[in-house]
């Protein structure tokens, strides 16, 4: 998946000022940068969630497997590019099972009852949540802890077997233990799909990602292998940021 000359904003306020980047398959790309630099807007353009808010603008190219995303039906696109948000957002009116099944039902993927159950279990196992919830699948998802809810949201996104998974600061509302579990999960999941993770936490970027993009004021300052970014960045601003001199 890649973006070329991507510009996006809210009304007259341009947040992304021409970003070009490539997110490699079966790798984790972290996007770091200070608040307001456009990290979230960038990932929200990848599955066209950006345009669902009123008054937003977007131009440039987003390409998925050689096809311009803007020419696709956003509904179809989002089935292939899953997303997990900052705060866990399980559907409060549904049980744990129904939460995971919702994407399958929406997209008409599940065949029969047993296939649906199988897929839900597989997704929950993938999100390493199965053992914790297998005895209470019919209960409300709101009874889970914050970390469990976030893993439920990951399971929900995985259920429709997307090619790309976008994680928008998935740990910002979680404690360190829950964060560690999500990070393990990310490392596990990258064997199967492309992952883009936005994070405020540079240690997290260093721990989970293969590539890191550093953004500043709507521009992509530097994009290279994570090791390079953190040890010998080529741009002075990147160095200042990763060494904690600002931001």
């Amino acid at each position: 998946m890649e973006v070329r000359g991507l510009r996006a904003g809210y009304g007259s306020n341009e947040v992304l000022k021409g970003v070009t980047a490539r997110f490699l398959e079966k790798a984790v790309t972290a996007i770091i940068g200070p608040s307001g630099c456009g990290k979230s807007t960038l990932v929200r353009c990848l599955n066209r969630m950006h345009e669902t808010a009123p008054g937003t603008t977007m131009s440039g190219q987003v390409v998925l497997y050689g096809r311009d995303v803007l020419s696709l039906d956003p509904v179809v696109l989002r089935r292939h590019v899953g997303m997990v948000f900052q705060r866990p957002n399980p559907f409060p009116n549904m049980s744990i099972f129904d939460n995971v099944a919702s994407g399958l039902v929406l997209n008409g993927i599940a065949g029969g009852r047993s296939e649906l159950e199988g897929r839900v279990e597989a997704s929950l196992r993938q999100a390493s949540l199965w053992d914790e919830v297998k005895d209470r699948l019919r209960r409300s998802a709101l009874g889970l802890s914050g970390g469990q809810q976030q893993r439920l949201c990951i399971a929900r996104a995985l259920a429709v077997s997307p090619n790309v998974l976008l994680l928008d600061e998935p740990c910002s509302a979680l404690d360190p233990i829950a964060t560690a579990r999500i990070e393990e999960l990310v490392l596990e999941l990258k064997k199967q799909l492309t992952i883009v993770i936005v994070t405020h936490n540079m240690q997290q970027a260093a721990r989970v990602s293969d590539f890191t993009a550093f953004m500043l004021l709507g521009e992509l300052v530097e994009f290279s292998a994570t090791g390079t970014i953190f040890t010998k960045p080529s741009d002075k601003r990147t160095e200042d940021y990763v060494t904690g001199r600002f931001g």
Binding site: R78, R79, F91, S102, G103, C153, A157, V160
Partner: peptide, 15 residues
């Protein structure tokens, strides 16, 4: 209705 909930279901490919 909280916006994150709506985005959550849209992100799953809901119309």
């Amino acid at each position: 209705v909280p916006r994150p909930l709506k985005e959550g279901v849209l992100a799953l490919g809901a119309t």
